[in-house]
Amino acid sequence: MSKIVRTVANQLILFVVIFGLYVIIQGHVTPGGGFQGGAIIASGAVLLIVASGSQEIKTWLRERRLSVVESSGALLFILLAFAGIGTVFFFNFLVGSRLFGGIPSVGPNPGDVWTGGVIPLMNLGVGLKVMAGLSAVVLALALFSGGEELEE
């Protein structure tokens, strides 16, 4: 693509990432969540691939590294679920604790990020996973359709 497109894309990517992180972190207060935020960030990766071409992207972003991030996100999710096994698997053990432990009053209220127990952390795990997974697939398909051989 032309230099204008590349420059604009490089500036825009910051906003895309910030918006995606916002959607992930605020998932338990406002509409959104890990899946949605991760998909937004992955769309930023698509923007970069379209603007600069997969050949340039692959010098610093490879699908193998992305799949490591993806596995870590999935592990974070399942470990958070495991952590509740003192009571029951998937028990929301952080409600009332120091970390994200606030309990909102029942009914309409202004909302607070510091609530939700494990939900924000799980959102983060899913967000990492979806972001890395979708970007990896898009990158792999872009490289593959360019006739590139992927690494193992």
Partner: peptide, 16 residues
């Protein structure tokens, strides 16, 4: 809101 401590009931259903 009480059990899952989350204002977003959809998020509470999804993750709790």
């Amino acid at each position: 809101q009480e059990e899952a401590a989350s204002n977003n009931v959809v998020a509470a259903v999804l993750f709790d």
